[in-house]
Amino acid sequence: MLVKDSDFNSLVPGLPLSRRTFVGGSLAAGFALAVRPAQGQSVIQTEASGLSTGDISIKATDGVPVRAYWVQPSGKGPFPTVLVVSEIFGLHEYIRDTCRRLARQGYQVIAPNLFQRQGDPASVGSVAEILSTIVSKVPDAQVMSDLDACAAWAGANGGDPARLAITGFCWGGRISWLYAAHNPQLRAAVAWYGRLTGVATGTSPKHPADLISHINAPVLGLYGAKDQGIPVSDVEDMREDMARAGKRAEFVIYPEAGHAFHADYRPSYRAEDAIDGWARMLAWFRDKGV
């Protein structure tokens, strides 16, 4: 089924919210389905015509040139900026197409390759291997620093540093929560099925549920009731804890969706929920001044 990017421009009436039990053990919980997608080719295909786009290199604070995909409307700007954080499968065509969809809404968009120091997910044959050999070795602190470098690059290259947002999918959804607690200049975050709890490790010492008091930016969380790695109870507990702490957040739980319901190159894709989530994301950004 071909879904046009124009389908993402209309809002769908709200869906009901739903209540966090800790699900420990597997590193894969809340990250991905058991089967690794063969490739990241999107069902939705967004043209680059009329956009400025390309692969760039951004110098990180440790001196490493971080590769990234950059796209924005033609012209000088300044444009509001959105950082896009990938799933565990990295910076493939689905993520690039997602960036172009956002650029067509008037945003400068940067999607960094946050795994490049540890490896290339495209060269690994299974989800378990990606998690054990690459993702588990990526320090959260390194990711936050790389995203800071992308935000600084954006502000110096046509982006508006006062209108900065982030969105991410799966692993990137968790990172979006973390960045909302890390960068006080962030205006808004949208986390697509990002894991909220987990075991503390050397590379990931804190999870979103541990950082509620530090979260400054308003966060929209988009989740599936049938996600086998992120229980509805986790989402509902996070909602309650955020409200109790006086934090700005909204949660949408799609009753029939599982994990990765926005990933249009995977069997988990649910077009209706993806379209609704996309519209909610755009409305969230604009309502928060991004």
Rank of each mutant, 00 (worst) to 15 (best):
L2S: 10
G14T: 08
S18T: 07
S18Y: 11
R20V: 10
F22K: 11
G30M: 10
A34T: 10
V35L: 14
Q39G: 05
S49Q: 06
T53C: 01
S57N: 03
G63V: 13
P65T: 02
K76D: 04
T81K: 05
V85R: 10
G90Q: 11
G90C: 12
Q105P: 00
G106C: 12
N113G: 06
P121F: 13
E129W: 02
S132K: 12
T133Q: 14
I134K: 07
Q142I: 08
V143W: 03
M144K: 09
D148H: 08
A154N: 06
G158L: 07
D160C: 03
D160Y: 03
T167C: 12
C170S: 14
G172A: 06
G173M: 07
S176R: 01
P184I: 08
R187L: 04
R187M: 03
V190K: 05
T197G: 06
T197H: 01
G202D: 15
P208T: 06
D210I: 02
P218D: 09
L220V: 05
A225E: 04
K226I: 10
G229K: 05
G229R: 04
D237Q: 15
R239H: 09
R244S: 11
A245C: 14
K247W: 00
A249W: 12
Y254H: 09
F261K: 08
A263T: 05
Y269K: 09
R280Y: 10
L282R: 07
